[in-house]
Simulated scan of single mutants.
Amino acid sequence: MTSHSPRNHPDPSATVAALSAQAVALERRVIELRRELAEVTARMAAVAAALAGLRASGLLPDPATGEERPGQDSG
């Protein structure tokens, strides 16, 4: 039978403390990533609205057909 030394087993309270610290850090990172994702989503919506406005004004071709609208300068 082998005897187990306390040195071979990590301290449970130290393990819990380390895991808790990691969990807090991960939760903060998740919150940060959610904020960044919301910012990217808002920027994408703004760009889509700007493109739609340009298409509506005839400054951009219709993406479905690739054709310019009448009166558009082809460059």
Score class of each variant (00 low, 15 high):
residue 65 T to F: 09
residue 25 A to P: 02
residue 30 V to P: 03
residue 36 E to W: 05
residue 40 V to T: 06
residue 66 G to M: 03
residue 46 A to L: 11
residue 36 E to A: 10
residue 64 A to Y: 02
residue 20 S to I: 05
residue 26 L to R: 00
residue 22 Q to T: 01
residue 73 D to P: 04
residue 16 V to S: 07
residue 36 E to V: 07
residue 28 R to Y: 01
residue 63 P to G: 10
residue 62 D to C: 11
residue 22 Q to P: 00
residue 55 R to I: 12
residue 60 L to G: 00
residue 70 P to C: 07
residue 15 T to L: 13
residue 35 R to K: 14
residue 41 T to V: 08
residue 33 L to A: 02
residue 67 E to F: 12
residue 46 A to T: 12
residue 22 Q to M: 01
residue 53 G to A: 14
residue 58 G to K: 08
residue 73 D to S: 13
residue 71 G to E: 08
residue 60 L to M: 06
residue 25 A to I: 00
residue 68 E to Y: 15
residue 61 P to W: 06
residue 69 R to Q: 15
residue 36 E to N: 09
residue 36 E to M: 10
residue 73 D to Q: 12
residue 21 A to T: 13
residue 29 R to D: 09
residue 44 M to P: 01
residue 31 I to L: 08
residue 45 A to V: 14
residue 41 T to A: 13
residue 52 A to N: 10
residue 17 A to T: 05
residue 61 P to K: 04
residue 52 A to Y: 05
residue 44 M to F: 13
residue 64 A to H: 03
residue 67 E to A: 15
residue 53 G to I: 11
residue 60 L to V: 02
residue 14 A to P: 02
residue 47 V to R: 00
residue 14 A to H: 06
residue 36 E to K: 10
residue 62 D to Y: 04
residue 60 L to K: 03
residue 37 L to F: 06
residue 24 V to D: 00
residue 42 A to E: 11
residue 50 A to L: 15
residue 46 A to E: 15
residue 54 L to Y: 01
residue 36 E to P: 02
residue 46 A to K: 11
residue 40 V to Y: 05
residue 14 A to E: 13
residue 54 L to W: 04
residue 53 G to F: 11
residue 31 I to F: 01
residue 60 L to E: 09
residue 46 A to Q: 14
residue 17 A to M: 05
residue 41 T to F: 03
residue 18 A to Q: 11
residue 50 A to G: 13
residue 47 V to N: 05
residue 19 L to Q: 14
residue 21 A to V: 07
residue 71 G to P: 06
residue 68 E to T: 14
residue 39 E to P: 03
residue 58 G to C: 10
residue 49 A to R: 08
residue 66 G to Q: 06
residue 54 L to E: 09
residue 21 A to R: 13
residue 36 E to R: 13
residue 41 T to W: 04
residue 69 R to W: 13
residue 69 R to H: 14
residue 34 R to S: 10
residue 37 L to A: 14
residue 41 T to K: 12
residue 34 R to W: 01
residue 50 A to N: 14
residue 49 A to Y: 03
residue 30 V to L: 05
residue 15 T to Y: 02
residue 15 T to Q: 11
residue 59 L to V: 13
residue 71 G to N: 08
residue 65 T to W: 09
residue 34 R to P: 02
residue 17 A to N: 02
residue 48 A to P: 03
residue 67 E to T: 11
residue 24 V to A: 01
residue 51 L to G: 05
residue 63 P to T: 08
residue 67 E to R: 14
residue 34 R to E: 15
residue 52 A to G: 12
residue 18 A to D: 10
residue 40 V to S: 04
residue 45 A to P: 09
residue 36 E to H: 08
residue 45 A to F: 10
residue 71 G to Q: 07
residue 22 Q to H: 06
residue 60 L to P: 00
residue 41 T to S: 13
residue 25 A to N: 07
residue 48 A to Y: 05
residue 21 A to D: 14
residue 21 A to I: 07
residue 67 E to P: 02
residue 41 T to P: 02
residue 42 A to P: 02
residue 66 G to P: 02
residue 69 R to T: 13
residue 18 A to K: 10
residue 38 A to F: 00
